[in-house]
Amino acid sequence: MPQAHVLLVDDETVFTRNISKLLAHRGYRVTAVNSGDAALRALEEQRFDVLVLDLKMPGLDGIATLREMLKLGLFVETIILTGHGSIDTALEAVKLGAHDYLTKPCEIDELVAKIESAREKARGRPS
């Protein structure tokens, strides 16, 4: 299986740095950006297998980013990161097409499992 390319979006740079490192150890190629706008630009420029998106960011937040992605036709399987588990936001994200969500701080094993299940879903998705 080819190396998966993950786009990691979070304004907390400590978090993105740690997670990038851990994901790289697990064999992923990781691109990290720190805002919703930067995420949209990255998605326009290249293809990613999975997007890991924080909900709470200044400027374009996670939900707004998902909405923009839909509008621009930039669909990619997405895992949402939330601080507090909130049914409403989690559901909204899922309704907008997010594959799954995770509560921060997350265990790396759990994140990897969700990334893999998102890839599996992408593969199974009828084209």
Binding site: H84, G85, S86, I87, A90, L91, V94, K95, Y101, T103
Partner: peptide
């Protein structure tokens, strides 16, 4: 409460799916 919220959220999201 984090467990309670996370569990309820997760059940809801999965049932909705």
């Amino acid at each position: 409460m984090t467990f309670v919220r996370a569990a309820c959220t997760s059940v809801c999201v999965n049932v909705f799916s």
